[in-house]
Write a protein that binds this DNA or RNA. Structure first.
Length: 586
RNA sequence: GGGCGUGUAGCACAGCUGGAUAAUGCACCGGCCUCCUAAGCCGGAGAUCGCGGGUUCGAAUCCUGCCACGCCCGCCA
């Protein structure tokens, strides 16, 4: 709780100094209390025992005795070698109502976040969507923190995958495709107007032919020619690629849009081939002292000399002189650095090695390496997700299912609603629950997708937070109806601490800690910790709601109402930060 | 074989820059709707923190060995 820490740090330092301790140590040791019922801040005195030759408990007690009373402090307690500080709820309330809990540390930056960047060859399944959901949440949380953010999608518009798609659309009929895929699950007719679901079948059929077709060799040659042309910037070929993938990409973006995920910019991989950046880059890399040349003229960097373990040769140029994916990625990164002063990539764990290679190479070129948020893959209870084996959950189907489930719940809970508003609420509840389910797990942890969890609307889910928020909204509209919008225009005074119910105090403490948490989350790229905070905040609001009647006997309690409004605003902003839809009624 | 990551109640998950009784949700047991939305609230039970060793006043947290799982180790993307 920085709010309190800033206030009392000088007092504690002074007391420490008077005992002969290094005051500089205090700021580091004084920390948020682990045991919340013990206080808000805690100073473990064990580290001082040796230098002072005293028992930790005695140090804590002596410190406690020498720290003067302060308006921000409710109490100071020495317990078991810990010195615990509890903020005065009345003081906290005053700080919060005056808006003094907002962090003033000046760390706002211009950030470019690249995420998703999935190959445009088929619909999102929940596995691929983990990137998009985590990435978009990172974008939103940085914005909530005050950073200026560009959300960017790097479009793989060249290379083999797109070439296969383009070739298939050019050379195969619908009948052919469906015959080849006869033993697979048919495309869901619900998505017959979405090109990502349609065209992926051409892609899949082509993949089959590349393996088993009698003319597989010719096909491979044809695709190889396309790939080669695209890598040399052949405009006609790149245009045909774009015609093939753009509708697919549009379909994918439609799905993401439903989850509240949007991009500020799309950058095509081919750009850096066409504008010559890649050629220039390869020339520059060739001049580095760690450059190596293979027998056929291919070139690599020996990154072992820069500390890379395992496979140390990093190839950036083929024998035929063309570039590789990673080479283009480096060119892309150099360009990205001209667009921002902070760079974050969201990548699957399968990209760890390449990210190392790109990072080390950038450093070799005198650039900074980007920050990376890695995430593990999502699997199903039945095992790895695989489109080929039909073991896959498409995002579009999941979102439909989530909405349908929400409608069922609503029919029971809110039979008064008309169909339209029911659908609006159900869509918000469904998409928010799906997002939150994924956000609330540490990115680097493996994730097993379960329908039961994704469709849970109880405590620990997005709807739980949404519900607390609607309670606050409901109170707001009732108060406004009762006493008008100008009710809070005058400063509201907080009552004495001992007149505050427990639920209120919990809420004040949770609100006070908001910016501490957000800063940590943004700095360390850990959206799940903010999801956890929002659950705490919603829980705290619920306790407050239980303990404090804002409207009683037709009278509005102005202080309670001010706190409720602050919580409402914080909930709403935080939900925005997670991409959870903030409804006013549900 | 090498590199990186993960392992915490029946299930899921937080805590990991060392500090107090390991947090939360689901499931389980009990209580609360003549009162601002019960998608809620209150209480209960449930944990050899993968296993062994080490460092420390103190280890889920740091070091080390082992085990299990995931990802990677293409002149693919």
């Amino acid at each position: 709780m920085d709010l309190l820490k800033n206030e009392i740090l000088p007092l504690v330092e002074q007391a420490a100094e008077s005992m002969g301790l290094d005051a500089g140590l205090i700021a580091r040791v004084l920390q948020p209390a682990r045991e919340l019922d013990q206080g808000d801040l805690s100073l473990p005195c064990f580290p001082f025992a040796k230098t002072l030759g005293m028992a930790p408990a005695a140090i804590a007690e002596q410190l406690a005795a020498s720290i003067p009373a302060h308006p921000s402090l409710e109490s100071i307690n020495a317990v078991n070698g810990y010195l615990n500080f509890r903020a005065s709820p009345a003081w906290l309330a005053q700080q919060l109502l005056e808006g003094r809990h907002r962090s003033t540390s000046n760390t706002r930056r211009e950030v470019l976040i690249e995420h998703t960047s999935a190959n445009p060859n088929g619909p999102f399944h929940v596995g691929r969507a983990r990137n998009a959901i985590l990435g978009d949440t990172l974008v939103r949380l940085h914005r909530l923190w005050g950073d200026t953010v560009t959300a960017e999608y790097y479009v793989d518009d060249m290379g083999k995958q797109v070439a296969v798609l383009a070739w298939a659309l050019e050379n195969m009929t619908t009948e052919e495709v469906e015959t080849l895929l006869a033993d697979r699950e048919a495309a869901n007719p619900q998505w017959s107007n979405k090109a990502d679901h349609q065209r992926v079948r051409w892609y899949q059929a082509a993949q089959l032919r590349r393996k088993d077709d009698p003319s597989a060799e010719d096909i491979e040659k044809a695709i190889g020619t396309l790939v080669h042309a695209s890598e040399h910037g052949d405009e006609a070929v790149l245009r045909s690629f774009e015609n093939a993938y753009q509708p697919v990409l549009d379909g994918m973006l439609e799905t993401l849009g439903r989850l509240g995920i949007h991009f500020d910019r799309f950058t095509k991989e081919s750009l850096f081939v066409i504008n010559g950046d890649v050629a220039k880059l390869m020339e520059e890399l060739g001049g580095l002292e760690i450059n190596g040349v293979a027998e056929n003229g291919a070139q690599y960097l020996d990154l072992g000399q820069r500390g890379l373990k395992g496979k140390t040769e990093f190839f950036y140029r083929r024998g035929d002189g063309s570039s590789l994916y990673a080479t283009r990625d480096i060119a892309y990164h150099r360009w990205k650095w001209t667009q921002c002063n902070e760079l974050i990539n969201v990548l699957g764990e399968d990209h760890k090695l390449q990210a190392q290679q790109v990072g080390l190479t950038l450093e070799e070129l005198g650039e900074r390496r980007p920050e990376v948020m890695f995430y593990s893959f999502i699997k199903l209870p039945e095992g790895k997700m695989s489109t080929r084996r039909g073991n896959v959950v498409f995002m579009d189907d999941l979102l439909e299912e989530a909405q349908a489930h929400a409608i069922e719940v609503l029919k029971e809970r809110r039979p008064d609603l008309d169909n339209a508003s029911m659908k609006t609420i159900a869509e918000a509840v469904g998409t928010s629950a799906v997002r939150f389910n994924i956000i609330s797990v540490s990115p680097e942890k493996g994730f097993t997708f379960r329908w039961e969890d994704a469709l849970s609307f109880e405590a620990g889910s997005a709807p739980f937070i949404m519900y607390s928020h609607t309670r606050a909204c409901s109170i707001q509209s009732k108060v406004e109806a009762l006493v008008g919008k100008e009710f809070l225009s005058d400063a509201v005074a907080a009552p004495a601490s001992d007149a505050m119910p427990e639920g209120l105090i919990q809420l004040l403490r949770t609100l006070a800690v908001h910016d501490d948490r957000l800063e940590k989350v943004v700095r360390e790229h850990r959206p799940n910790l903010f999801a956890e905070y929002m659950l705490h905040l919603a829980t705290a609001y619920n306790s407050f709601y239980r303990d404090c009647y804002i409207i009683e006997d037709g009278e509005v309690n102005p202080f309670y109402y001010a706190v409720s409004e602050l919580a409402r605003a914080t909930l709403r902003a935080g939900m925005e930060g997670l991409g959870v839809v903030s409804l006013t009624t549900m």
